[in-house]
């Protein structure tokens, strides 16, 4: 299907750049949808870009209690997340780095990013940072099994954890829906919401330090470092969505490297990402943030769903 060549490599890198470049747009669109559904006008959908550029030009205030961990964490975070994005197909059914890593590596890289972000929360010697870090680790240690089980289901269905193989066999699948995938999709949806810190797990729009998860960890950041964190968060969000889209809804993904196929793939991907983004944003306005210790219930539902998915696969 895809021969390793300079062209495929270039196309692969371009699709990652597309993902990285358009990720803030998704954030912007979701904010806009949320605002509209709350009867507000809301900021421009380009606002996340303005924010990032503005933050990058600002001076930084660094706490005197911090160490090199604090200064390097956003860079490691960004690099890890952006590298993870390299492995995820967007509009093509393959990624050129598919041989260097699989979906477990993508998760590993996200974990690496998280590890440093959590450490940076502890590094500033502020109770808020610790609060956020502790909650983040609680969530992630529970999401880990849910995610692994989802991957289990998916890899059973498509016979791979290699993302290129996954997406190609998903795209080549005659049967549109299989029961096990249906369960895996439910689970994956919960995980995406949890991983990206949306409601009902975490309220990205809150100003209350005491209720924050992700925002509390990065409370001490400013300037370039904050820009990196925000951008990395957007990239992570779109990467997870891309993963979900291309595994569960692979229709229209480009299986050859012709301009038409790629163009169509890109458009279809954009439409699907927007649609899911809008759905998530809509859910966010319609649900209250769950009580912190109820959140494991939701993750347990994801786990149970994957478990049933596995049962259905083997039947």
């Amino acid at each position: 299907m895809f021969e390793p060549s300079f062209a495929t490599l270039a196309a692969g890198i371009i699709q990652t750049l597309v993902l990285i470049a358009f990720s803030p747009l998704l954030t912007g669109v979701m904010r806009k949808v949320k605002a509209r559904s709350q009867k507000r006008i809301g900021a421009s959908i380009l606002q996340p870009y303005y924010d990032i550029v503005k933050l990058m030009r600002k001076d930084e205030v660094i706490s005197d209690q911090t160490s090199w961990i604090f200064k390097s964490a956003p860079w490691i975070n960004f690099a890890a997340v952006a590298t993870a994005a390299l492995f995820v197909p967007v509009m093509l059914a393959y990624s050129p780095f598919g041989l260097a890593g699989d979906v477990l590596l993508v998760i590993g890289l996200f974990s690496l990013a998280r590890f440093f972000t959590v450490l940076s929360g502890l590094d500033s010697a502020s109770a808020f940072g610790g609060l956020g870090s502790s909650r983040e680790m609680m969530l992630s240690s529970l999401i880990e099994p849910a995610l692994f089980l989802t991957i289990f289901t998916v890899s059973l269905t498509f016979g791979a954890t290699n993302i290129t193989t996954l997406v190609s066999s998903a795209a080549g699948l005659q049967q549109l829906v299989t029961p096990s995938l249906l369960f895996a999709l439910i689970s994956m949806f919960v995980i995406v919401i949890a991983e990206t810190g949306r409601l009902p797990f975490d309220n990205p729009a809150t100003h209350l330090e005491l209720t924050m998860v992700h925002e509390a960890m990065v409370l001490e950041y400013s300037g370039k470092l904050l820009a990196l964190i925000e951008w990395a968060q957007s990239i992570k969000h779109l990467t997870l969505l891309a993963l979900m889209i291309n595994i569960f809804f692979p229709w229209g993904v480009a299986t050859s490297l012709s301009a038409a196929a790629v163009g169509e793939g890109l458009l279809v991907f954009a439409a699907k990402a927007l649609a899911i983004g809008v759905i998530i944003a809509f859910i966010e306005t319609r649900v209250a943030k769950w009580r912190l210790f109820r959140i494991p219930d939701l993750i347990a539902i994801a786990i149970a769903s994957s478990m049933v998915g596995i049962v259905f696969f083997y039947i």
């Binding site: 590094d123 880990e144 692994f148 478990m307």
Partner: peptide, 25 residues
Amino acid sequence: SLAFALTAGLAAAAFVKIFGISFLS
């Protein structure tokens, strides 16, 4: 394998804690 994945998640939490609390702040 659920147990295995849970272990991985908990281990990360444990070591974030060990490193973060002992060395940072």
